[in-house]
Amino acid sequence: MSFRPPDPKTASGQQNGAIAAALDIAGVSHSYGKRKALSDVSLRVRPASFCVLLGLNGAGKSTLYSLITRLYGAQKGTIRIFGFDVNRVPSEALRRLGVVFQARTLDLDLTVLQNLSYHAALHGMSARETKLRAAFVLDQAGMTGRADDKARNLSGGQMRRVEIARALLHCPRLLLLDEPTAGLDIKARADILKHVRGLVAEAGIGVLWATHLIDEIEPADDVVLLHEGKVLDRGNASEVAARAGAPDIGAAFNELTGIAGGRKSCDRPS
C-alpha cells in the first residue's frame, strides 16, 4: 500500500522546470447560498515576497483563506500552492502551507510546547524533529522562556507569536496570516509585523497577510485590493496608488472603493 501522492509534475505541479508561484489563485468564486462572497478572484504570491490582502471587514478575506486552506472547497476556479492544486493534491499543497487564522486556535489547556507538539504530530513529524524545530521556532519568536506555560496564561501578542511559531514548525514555504495583529497593542503589532517581514527577507518564505490596516503596508509590498468579494486592483503598492491617481495606497483604496471620506474607510489606527 503506497501513501505517496501523484507525481507533482503530472498533477498540477511545476511545469517545464519553472518555479511555480507560492500561491496562484485563478478565477475563484464562492457563494453562501444566494450571497456571493467571492467573485472571479485571481491573485499570485511570489516565493519570498510579502503580499498584503487589503480589504474591509466582510470583503471576503476569511472566505478566501478558508478556501486556500481547504476548510471547504472552492465552487469555481483553481488554487495552487507551489503548483499543487489544493483540491486535487491537498496533502502536497497543505504541507507547504502555514496558517495563522484570525480566531485564536491554540488549545488554552495545553502548554505552548504541547500545542506545538500536537501541530507537529498533525504533520507527521518525529519526536526528535519536533524537539529541534520547536526549540528553533520558539527562539525565533522570542518565546523560549514560555514553552512550559499554559497557552491561557499568555498575552494576546504572545499567543500570536506562538501561533506564528506553530505555523512555521513544519517548514512551510508559504505563510497565510488572517488579520494577525487584530486586537493587539501598537508594540505587539510592530513586533509581529517585523518578525514576519524578517521571515520573508531571511528565510525566503512567501507571505499573504490579510489586513484592513493601511499602516501595515510598505510602498514596495505587493498588494491585492479586495472589496465586496472582488479584486479591484493588484500589484506593487506604489503602482496601485499611481494607477488610481492617489498619493498613497490608503487613498487609492478609498478612491477605488468609492468610500473616500467615510468612516468605513480602511483604518489608520492611532
Binding site: R95, R96, F136, D139, Q140, A141, G142, R161, L168, C171, P172, R173, D191, K194, H195, G198, L199, A201, E202, A203, G204, I205
Partner: peptide, 9 residues
C-alpha cells in the same frame, strides 16, 4: 524575535 533560515520542505 530573530529570523533565521529555515530548512527546505
Amino acid at each position: 524575535m530573530r529570523p533565521a533560515v529555515l530548512a527546505p520542505p
